[in-house]
């Protein structure tokens, strides 16, 4: 029924990277996320699916505390990465975000050169002691972003001049340049054409080797193609969380089944 490539959905034995317990999110008076519990594993692609407004992006933004930048947003509950509470008062969200990279729905390269886009994170975190090291980091990141071959001859041209798909891979390279442990992707392919989407999906599967990848997607086919674990959100609730193959072939909750068969959503 779904286009599921072989091998991608096999779940290896892995450690738990992120644990969320009783997470509640409020926007002003709106209760956007209700009591979410989830364990996200490292070296795994975890997909969040669900209809629009179900809270999947909001929950994703809790993991790197991007919701802190929204004044009216309030997060309760307990989210731990490697056992450390990320909402602890002693945690600096700035350092947390270096550890938890994020890629957005729309490619958002800075109006700088390709090189400076990628070098920005390493620069502000003081990761390179000299130009040569920085060059190394940039090249490595661009290679991981699977865009090195396309841009290696024009590193100084503006990042905004690339095509949509290239821009998104540049943004992924930018995110991995700070050596994060978790990579959050908020509908990374929704602004891309099918060919660029295929390239990014390919890339997501490779990134799994090094990171815990969490991807929010509207496309169930995409979730089925790239993820090993899938969480289905509905009206702010985490309805079901299981292996992707299980969710798509034998869901336990009737709402999940309705959604993946296209009856709701």
């Amino acid at each position: 029924m779904y286009d599921v490539p072989h091998g991608r959905n096999e779940v290896a034995v892995t450690d738990v990277k992120i644990t969320a317990r009783n997470v509640q999110v409020y926007y002003g008076d709106t209760h956007a996320i209700k009591d979410v519990n989830v364990e996200i594993e490292s070296n795994t692609v975890t997909a969040f699916i669900g209809p629009s407004g179900c809270g999947k992006s909001t929950f994703l933004r809790c993991i790197n505390r991007m919701n802190d930048t929204i004044d009216i947003c309030r997060v309760e509950g307990d989210i731990r990465i490697d056992g450390d509470d990320i909402y602890d008062k002693r945690v600096d969200p700035v350092q947390l975000r270096a550890k938890v990279g994020m890629v957005f729905q729309k490619p958002n390269p800075f109006p700088k050169s390709i090189y400076d886009n990628v070098a920005y994170g390493p620069k502000i975190h003081g990761m390179a002691r000299n130009k040569a090291e920085l060059d190394d980091i940039v090249e490595r990141a661009l290679r991981r972003g699977a865009i090195w071959d396309e841009v290696k001859d024009r590193l100084q041209s503006p990042g905004t001049g690339l095509s949509g798909g290239q821009q998104q891979r540049l943004c992924i390279a930018r995110a991995v340049a700070t050596e994060p442990e978790v990579l959050l992707m908020d509908e990374p392919c929704s602004a891309l054409d099918p060919i660029a989407t295929a390239q990014v999906e390919e890339l997501i599967d490779e990134l799994r080797q090094n990171y815990a990848v969490v991807i929010v997607t509207h496309s169930m086919q995409q979730a089925a193609r790239v993820s090993q674990k899938t969480a289905f959100f509905h009206l702010g609730n985490l309805v079901e969380y299981d292996d992707t193959t299980k969710i798509f072939t034998n869901p336990e909750d009737s709402r999940t089944e309705s959604y993946i068969t296209g009856r709701i959503g």
Binding site: N64, M66, T69, V94, Q95, L96, R97, A98, K99, G101, M102, F104, K106, N108, P109, F110, P111, Y120, G121, I124, H125, C171, R174, A175, T178
Partner: peptide
């Protein structure tokens, strides 16, 4: 300046 640029910088761990 688009909101996405702010988010992009903040998500990289910029203050």
């Amino acid at each position: 300046v688009p909101r996405s640029l702010r988010d992009g910088a903040l998500a990289l761990g910029a203050t």
